[in-house]
Computed example of a mutant assay.
Amino acid sequence: MPWKYASSALVLVAALLAGCSSTPESSTSAESAAATDTGQSRCDAAAAQFAVGKPASPALLEQARVKSGAQTARVLGPNDMVTLEYRSDRLNLNTDQAATVNRVNCG
Rank of each mutant, 00 (worst) to 15 (best):
W3C: 06
W3V: 13
S8M: 13
S8H: 15
A9R: 15
L10Q: 10
V11C: 11
V11F: 14
L12V: 13
V13Q: 08
A14E: 02
A15N: 04
L17C: 09
G19R: 05
G19Q: 06
C20R: 12
S21L: 12
S22D: 09
T23D: 04
T23S: 15
P24H: 05
P24M: 07
P24G: 06
E25R: 15
E25F: 09
S27D: 12
T28C: 07
T28A: 14
S29E: 12
E31P: 00
E31Q: 13
E31G: 05
A33W: 03
D37M: 10
D37R: 13
R42T: 09
C43M: 01
A45R: 13
A46D: 14
A46E: 15
A46N: 15
A47F: 11
Q49Y: 05
Q49D: 13
F50P: 04
A51E: 02
K54Q: 14
P55W: 05
A56E: 00
A56G: 02
S57D: 05
P58G: 06
P58Y: 07
L60H: 01
L60W: 01
L60V: 01
E62W: 07
E62Y: 07
V66C: 08
K67G: 00
S68V: 01
G69A: 08
A70C: 05
A70H: 02
A70M: 08
T72N: 06
R74T: 02
L76R: 08
L76T: 04
G77D: 01
P78H: 13
P78L: 11
P78R: 10
P78T: 13
M81V: 00
T83F: 03
T83N: 10
L84Q: 05
L84G: 11
Y86Q: 05
L91C: 10
N92Q: 08
N92W: 03
L93W: 09
N94C: 02
N94G: 03
T95F: 03
T95D: 03
D96E: 11
D96A: 12
Q97E: 14
Q97F: 10
A98T: 14
A99P: 00
T100G: 03
V104E: 05
V104K: 10
V104H: 07
N105S: 14
N105Q: 11
C106L: 05
C106G: 05
